[in-house]
Amino acid sequence: MRVVVDRTRCIGSGQCVMTDPEVFDQDEDEGLVVLRTPEPPESARERMRAAVALCPSAAIRLEE
């Protein structure tokens, strides 16, 4: 599973970081999303789906 984020869309809500801090983070400079783990383990799939649903600006995508 591969996670893709689009920083130009991100509004820094932090909802993805709240959902899985192992995978998502926010950078110090702008507070926008950065990926810590672009290819999370299969066990994180449900959390990744939740992050996609929570993101207010459709900035997160899952590629199988």
Partner: peptide, 14 residues
């Protein structure tokens, strides 16, 4: 206007 604020309210910042 929003960009200057986002870094102030990150999960880590909070």
């Amino acid at each position: 206007l929003r960009r200057p604020l986002t870094r102030e309210f990150t999960v880590r910042g909070v």
